[in-house]
């Protein structure tokens, strides 16, 4: 940790701070918003980029200290692929359970509650 180039050090610090702040924003959104579907936005976006920032910092740090930051890359890819899928499944569960939404209940959904289980 003590032999890093100052620029690399600054880059890692910047990515760490950005990532952590976006993670925090995700948490705040989760606690603050008024209904489930609005809360769904905060973690799926902010947290993905937040963890992405932290992981980029980890990757740069690995490269800078002469290792090959592969697990970090795999975690980033995995999170970016899975976050939309779990968001979609949670939204479907909420619609199925008729969770209240400030935007009202979508008109098209009332008759076919089980028609859309194909994306698995």
């Amino acid at each position: 940790m003590d032999t890093l180039h100052p620029l690399v050090d600054a880059l890692i610090s910047l990515m760490l701070i950005i990532g952590a702040l976006f993670t925090l924003v995700g948490g705040i959104g989760l606690a603050r918003f008024g209904d489930f579907f609005m809360r769904l936005h905060a973690p799926t976006k902010a947290t993905t980029l937040g963890v992405g920032g932290v992981l980029i910092a980890a990757m740069v740090y690995s490269w800078a200290s002469g290792r090959f930051g592969v697990p970090e890359l795999l975690i980033t890819l995995f999170l970016f692929i899975t976050a939309p899928v779990s968001a979609n499944l949670m939204a479907k569960a909420a619609l199925h359970l008729k969770v209240q939404s400030k935007a009202g209940r979508p008109a098209v959904f009332d008759d076919g509650a089980e028609t859309s289980g194909k994306r698995s």
Partner: peptide, 13 residues
């Protein structure tokens, strides 16, 4: 469920 999912992602971080 959403909170738990977010908690998992935060644990990763």
């Amino acid at each position: 469920l959403l909170a738990l999912d977010t908690l998992y992602i935060n644990v990763v971080a």
